[in-house]
């Protein structure tokens, strides 16, 4: 009963944040300098034609009306029409979303598996030389510009050694019958390797440091000492009790990390010419394709907001102290 109220309140908060972000987004794009149709309007258009266009996009209406229309359209899944592609933004954005999500999730899963294991190991080795070298090193990977790491990997492994392709998702001219055929092709994974490596190297620091410090805290807990007094095996003490408890906040951070990663993807997708939401956002902003930019931004924001929600719910679901109240 109480849990339901808490979840309900959290859902309500999510809805509020979503609406607020949509509103900010709308006004940000409408209040910017210059005509929103500047890129769309051919200089040869007559004023009548321009006015007609304005009317077609609803830009002749007062701002608040435009806002309501925008909200109404959103509810119907209508994000407007891209100036550049002359195609619905929703279609375009949804087509690119899987590419971005694949990149985000595969890199984060690698980062988390590695980070959790290495973090637990470094906690176990606290005070050792290995630890004293590794921790500043990991901090350094957090200080890297992601795109620079991508550039370095490209220069070495693609241009230098020729092991990996320089960008995109498929070899030039390759066509696939379906998305599934593309995603399951060896070429796709081939193209994905460097960007995933880039993101994974950058991301492993967060779970690693978090796991390490949680583990060090948990190892001092009475129940870990008790597990030793019970004569349980080292495996039971470290994995079943210490790691299981230390893992809770790390699992929660995964959802948060998805939200952060998807923002950071913008630069890495650009470096590797990866056809994802981030690169599309950059292109749309550069070419003043505002409906598309707005749509891509919105999509990224939705992922961020949803992941913040998932993090909270995950925490509640994983920690019996919250679930069984």
């Amino acid at each position: 009963m109480k849990a339901i109220t808490v979840i309900g309140a959290r859902l309500l908060q999510t809805a509020f944040v979503l609406l607020a972000v949509i509103t900010i987004l709308f006004f940000m794009f409408r209040l910017m300098p210059g005509s929103p149709l500047a890129a769309y309007i051919d200089p040869n258009f007559t004023p009548e034609q321009q006015a007609e266009l304005m009317a077609r996009f609803g830009l002749d209406q007062p701002l608040w009306r435009q806002y309501l229309i925008y909200l109404g359209n959103l509810l119907q899944g209508d994000l407007g029409e891209s100036f550049f592609y002359r195609q619905p933004v929703a279609e375009r954005v949804l087509a690119l979303l899987p590419n971005t999500l694949i990149l985000t999730f595969s890199s984060l899963i690698i980062a988390y598996v590695f980070g959790v294991l290495a973090g637990a190991y470094l906690a176990w080795k606290r005070g050792s030389v290995v630890e004293q070298i590794c921790v500043p090193l990991v901090l350094t990977t957090r200080a890297m510009p992601e795109f620079w790491l991508g550039m370095l990997l490209l220069a070495v492994f693609s241009f230098g050694m020729g092991w990996f392709p320089a960008g995109g998702t498929r070899p030039p001219g390759a066509e696939y019958d379906s998305l599934w055929a593309l995603y399951s092709s060896a070429d796709f994974w081939w193209h994905m390797t460097l960007p995933v490596m880039t993101l994974a190297i950058y991301s492993q620091g967060l779970p690693l440091l978090l796991m390490r410090s949680n583990m060090m805290d948990v190892m001092r807990e009475d129940f870990v000492t008790m597990a030793r007094i019970k004569g349980l095996s080292t495996f039971s003490v470290v994995i079943r009790h210490a790691a299981r408890n230390a893992l809770l906040p790390v699992m929660t951070s995964f959802a948060i990390a998805v939200g952060y990663q998807i923002q950071g993807n913008v630069v890495v997708e650009t470096v590797f010419s990866w056809p994802g939401l981030g690169r599309e956002l950059v292109r749309a902003v550069s070419t003043a394709d505002y409906p598309l930019a707005q749509g891509a931004f919105l999509m990224i924001a939705v992922v961020v907001i949803l992941m913040n929600l998932v993090a909270d719910l995950l925490y509640a679901a994983l920690d019996p102290r919250v679930t069984h109240e």
Partner: peptide, 11 residues
């Protein structure tokens, strides 16, 4: 917290 930071800076 709901605003994606880097996209926000870009825009």
């Amino acid at each position: 917290f709901g605003i994606p930071f880097l996209p926000f800076v870009i825009v």
